[in-house]
Design a protein around this nucleic acid. Sequence first.
DNA 1: CAGAATCCAATAGGATACTG
DNA 2: CAGTATCCTATTGGATTCTG
Lengths: 149, 149
Amino acid sequence: MGTRARAGNRLAAREALAQRVRGWAHLPFDPARCPVRSVLDQLGDKWTTLVVLVLTQGPHRFSAVQRAIPDISKRMLTQALRDLERDGLVARQVFPTTPPSVEYRLTPLGESLLEPLGALIAWAEVHMAGIVAARAGFARQRTARPAGA
Amino acid sequence: MGTRARAGNRLAAREALAQRVRGWAHLPFDPARCPVRSVLDQLGDKWTTLVVLVLTQGPHRFSAVQRAIPDISKRMLTQALRDLERDGLVARQVFPTTPPSVEYRLTPLGESLLEPLGALIAWAEVHMAGIVAARAGFARQRTARPAGA
DNA sequence: CAGAATCCAATAGGATACTG
DNA sequence: CAGTATCCTATTGGATTCTG
């Protein structure tokens, strides 16, 4: 695919999203029932997405997930896993051994999230350098003339 | 494209993401410098994404964005816009009129986000019903036998 | 109009101790 | 091991007031 076609794709994606947004305009606009907010809130809660990423590597036990995300507390991991289970993205399977062991894995619904999530993460990795540069430039601007110097 | 090919794409996307995640394994794992966290934190902060979606409709003035998102406060809108500007996703243009007017628009970097973001939102809209159903089922399970009934 | 500043309430989230 | 319960702190975010 040439750069021309890629640019066309991007433009098409932009226009498609713009139209989708326009389509919401005449809706009642109940923030609580907005799918966008609902999903984005979940993904943005600092841990959920990380847990999903760990589970792309296959089923994990509770403690294995915790080892994979060193700075998560048990409390938050429990909550993230329960939310994901509640939403049907993750399945929880208990093995009645002693001590008990529990395994978590992505459901088909959870796996279907990986495609758009992967695209977003790819974007993040590609553009991270640009964002960092923009931040540096922004910080310079702000410190350059704080009091009309 | 047939269902077979679509399933193949999905599988490919899953495997691609899984590999990407594996690629991070040997990294120092500094949570503060993780692009994924950095981007997801931003998108998940409840307002940033909504603002971006509004700006897909073209340049907006401060108050126009606020009208488009009824339940945002000036404080939060200011912050969201400044963060977006800082990251280079949004450009801010001041017109020296009285009273002053300021226009915000997406930069090329900001527009490049629309493609993966649109994919995520499309996913959210498509699967929202399934998630709601899963939540209902989960709630039933929990209330069914809270004390071994 | 576009924001900055201040104050306050709600929530998120970490640390620790306890349980089946 | 896989959580739950409790406590406490930090951050988020709304309401209000003030300024250029």
